[in-house]
Design a protein around this nucleic acid. Structure first.
Lengths: 203, 203
DNA sequence: ATCGGTATTGGACCGATGGACAGGGTGACA
DNA sequence: TGTCACCCTGTCCATCGGTCCAATACCGAT
């Protein structure tokens, strides 16, 4: 689980040393040669072809963070799109770098706070139109049917659904029958699969 | 620094208790009254007007995570747009919930991995985490038990599984019983949920 | 006022499911 | 040789799940 800072040879980076005593400063070539699964790799965005390097190491299982001297939303998207999990200012204080590391090693995403709002907003615009499949499938259900379907999708039994909705188990069966008919599924198992794999199908 | 789970009154959520012993289950009204700066608040997306609640508490300084039983991109960005820092499946295992908490308390963003993959364009991989999760659940099964479990995860009935594996339905039941016991699930529905989540993560 | 959709509940039926018994057969290992 | 884990099978039984037959009530539309 090495800690690598990828930058041009001439850079001196005391903050990184201060943040991670065991870190090593390497060039792009060394990074390609050394980085492997689980390694934390910090890449400067002023390197030539940094997105390519990020993508390569990311697919190899390394955890990538991109550091920029002039953070902007376009670059942030490039970084995340290439597989980076973090995007921060290159001059971030050591405490912040350690915080970023904590986040990314726990499967989180860390984005330069000033950019976060714009990043989220931009992604929302790009995805807003295409991710409505679930909307479609649940829209044809009545309020009660939808409630029953979602409860069943949690793995609850008919009896448990009845308790939650304060109705009879018999009524649950009635609604569930309507759900099966409308969604074209045979039983609750296929319903669970349908609802829990919406995103997969939407691809 | 309270830990609040906002859900409907009737919900029983042993996973949350398991993840955070000190957590409290509250209704939307209590959440509005109690949540303050630094509190971790987990909001179910099947509550009415959850985005409004998230926005309110987020602006008040609370750390918001949205949990959904049927995660999708649109809802994810609604959550992030409203100020949530985390978006995960409501049935996420306790370890995952704790991981999410670690990330969000360090100013990170945690998004349901397969949604994240769509956001950043597919280059994203969760090699470490997903591989370990797969290990945990399927490694403890024997070859035959795994085959039965995966067939059931497709929605096949015991009889269909028996035909596919060229064994008796009774044998399928026997293996399935062992699978339930080893994975700690009550019935095939919960097994489907457990396994279908992993298949999605394996994307 | 009648018609259609929705929500609710009842009874009955039957297949599917899961657990609790109880075995037999195999190969690995001490 | 005995033990152990795995794989396969059987019977019995309580429960669950899904569909058939109904019925009552509310509400909006025609």
């Amino acid at each position: 689980m090495a800690q690598l800072f990828v930058c041009r040879g001439g850079d001196e980076m005391p903050r990184w040393r201060e943040a991670f005593a065991e870190a090593r400063l390497v060039g792009p070539g060394q990074a390609r040669a050394q980085a492997g699964t689980g390694d934390r790799v910090w890449v400067m965005s002023d390197l030539e072809a940094w997105p390519r390097l990020v993508a390569t190491l990311s697919q190899r299982g390394a955890i990538l963070c991109v550091l920029s001297h002039a953070p902007n939303s376009l670059e942030a998207f490039q970084a995340l799109g290439a597989g980076a999990r973090g995007y921060a200012h290159a001059l971030s204080p050591p405490e912040l770098l350690r915080q970023v590391e904590t986040v990314v090693t726990h499967q989180g995403i860390w984005v330069w706070p000033e950019l976060l709002a714009r990043v989220v907003g931009g992604a929302f615009r790009t995805l807003g139109g295409e991710a409505m499949l679930q909307e479609e499938t649940l829209a044809c259900l009545t309020e009660r049917e939808r409630a029953v379907a979602l409860a069943v999708a949690e793995g609850l039994s008919n009896k448990a659904v009845a308790r939650r909705l304060a109705i009879t188990e018999r009524t649950v069966k009635a609604h569930l029958g309507a759900v099966f008919r409308k969604l074209g599924v045979r039983d609750r198992m296929q319903l669970i699969l349908k609802l829990s794999r919406q995103e997969q199908n939407a691809l």
